[in-house]
Design a protein around this nucleic acid. Structure first.
Lengths: 340, 340
DNA sequence: GACTGGCACTCGCAAAGTGGGAGTGCCAAG
DNA sequence: CTTGGCACTCCCACTTTGCGAGTGCCAGTC
């Protein structure tokens, strides 16, 4: 059965009121607050239909209605326009990010900013190396058998590792290795590098084989393994705001999930280019997050995506507002990365 | 008035029972569970005295007694021996830390380990640079007017920064600068370096003055400003364990305080060498943490202190156990740092 | 003087009872 | 299709009640 316009309007009103008040909303209050031009009785009939279709439900007989996860989903997909940000918010974003001194600082500020603006838990993935490309490699001799490998990515992110060589090495050989590595890898996207590293070893003259082999192991680790593991988090205190009415009583499972970086990466790292993903309640695969919703989006310079960011909160959240904020912040940070 | 031995014994029993059960403890239950060799009535008299002295209190008339912050303090100072760790715990510590690949990983694992063993919120300060000494400086040319400065500290921590030079620079000059910087700074403790950097600039030949001046600014920043700001946190989910009986109802202020790195650094960073500090409830200067206790200690290779670590939980916590665990982990991590 | 058993008293808490009110579903009429 | 009316449901906040744990005090004992 198709829902006519008024029924959709009723659903929207229910969602908006419930999000605002946190209380089940009844037919009478609805007609009063929104100027639906019909009587409560009519609204009740519409509600009955909406309930049958699974978009709303009553917590108890003879209480008001509350949106279901499906109801929120419909609301997000069809019934809400993305709220434009207020000038005050735009200014807040700029002011907050403008003083950032390095990449860590950008991420740090971003996550706090998001938490503050949305009043939810905010998550920002550090710019992932795998989708970015290599700007420069450096080898620094620490001792005769030890090198430090430093990689600088286009995003400005820097990774370093120590390598123990199988035997002493000459300064000239270090220079040679550095030259060869840069020649082969600079400008390439990190995801594409592993086969190149393999080739690099094979093309190396026998005299330099042993150190190059040792290096290649570490290069692969740096390039691939540790590549998207870091996450910044802020605003957990916001979880405790709703007086435990959200999250059916216990913050425990939520806090636990938030401590698992693997989970966060799955939620906020798997983002498609220029898409904002909204995951509502039950739609979450993670058991512990069935009472939470997530708004996530990718960010990066231009149209490139180098990481994800977003917010997490109760299913009863201000979707249009949060979506707008997350998008705006993501775009701003993306531009920032593009500049450097 | 001096408290005789039995009264102290009663206090110890109250603390232990209350920590275990989370419920006010009465005179009858006390004599049953601990073999005090007196009657409930006697215990009641002792309790009356203890209450008068401010070590315990009753939540309501005719309820059992609960330790006050002063009671816990007395318990920690005089009445508890540090529990030796169980072999299982020792093994857990080793197993958990043994696979760590780099400094970040060590800190990461440590904080999770602490959270797991104590079932409290754990905090670990990254090894502070300021108390460690410089192992090596490296200058890496990125372009003709841009250098990357990399500093490696004795603790294995690496910091890097980009520097824009006032004009193009030759490779040989970079080498010269590198040599001079290392000559002057290697082996010095970071806190002692600022005047040395000043001197360095003054001793520089006029031709190299401009780049050295640019460098010195960044060196000072790296050496001083950003020097002890990082903190790792784990186990916040443990806060939600006590069913909100701890922390008088709201986790909010606690979570908020935990998000302020400045606060955490104050709490866990200001540690004296080889001391375990216990801060109980009211003793905390931070308003929001008046219902929490903190056990913190320093750690580092040998007798050096390069950072702090510890746990935070409800005042009703297992002090002897937590103190023992924090100390053991700190010592283990310190040894680990000493090796590399 | 220190300890003990007895006893009256206090008071929080949980279970049970209660009234009010918000909200519903249905129906007959417009 | 919409509307006003009406009977009905049932949650919630409030009060009542009884119970029991725990206390403080006192008089008696060692």
């Amino acid at each position: 059965m198709a829902l006519d316009d008024r029924k959709l309007e009723v659903l929207r009103a229910i969602v908006e009121d419930y999000v605002a008040t946190q209380e089940p909303v009844g037919s009478k209050a609805l007609v009063e607050r929104h100027n639906l031009r019909v009587s409560p009785a009519t609204v009740r009939n519409d509600m009955a239909v909406l309930e049958e279709e699974g978009y709303i439900r009553q917590p108890h007989t003879s209480a008001g209605r509350v949106p279901t996860d499906a109801g929120y989903r419909l609301f997000v997909d069809k019934l809400s326009r993305v709220k434009p940000l207020s000038p005050a918010e735009r200014r807040a974003i700029e002011r907050f990010l403008i003083g950032a001194v390095d990449l860590d600082d950008v991420v740090h500020r971003t996550v706090r900013l998001l938490a503050q603006l949305t009043r939810q838990v905010a998550v920002v993935q550090y710019p992932s190396l795998s989708r970015a490309s290599v700007r420069h490699f450096e080898l620094v001799p620490i001792s005769t058998t030890r090198l430090m490998v430093v990689m600088i990515a286009e995003t400005g992110r820097v990774e370093q590792r120590l390598v123990d060589l199988p035997g002493p090495i000459l300064a000239d050989d270090v220079t040679e290795l550095r030259r060869r590595i840069n020649e082969k890898l600079v400008g390439k996207r990190l995801v594409d590098t592993p086969p190149l590293v393999e080739a690099l070893v094979e093309e190396t003259a026998p005299s330099l084989r042993p150190p190059m082999t040792a290096l290649s192991t570490v290069l692969l680790e740096t390039l691939v393994e540790r590549t998207e593991e870091r996450i910044a988090l802020a605003g957990t205190a916001n979880l405790a705001r709703g007086g435990l009415l959200d999250f059916q009583g216990s913050l425990r499972p939520i806090l636990e999930a938030l401590e698992e970086e693997v989970i966060l990466l799955k939620l906020f790292g798997e983002v498609e280019p220029s898409m904002t993903r909204v995951r509502i309640g039950d739609e979450n695969e993670i058991e512990d997050l069935r009472s939470a919703s997530i708004v996530a989006t990718g960010y990066g310079p231009g149209s490139m995506v180098v990481g994800g960011m977003g917010v997490l909160g109760p299913t009863r959240m201000d979707y249009p507002g949060n979506i707008a904020t997350v998008r705006a912040v993501a775009r701003y940070v993306g531009d920032l990365l593009g500049q450097s």
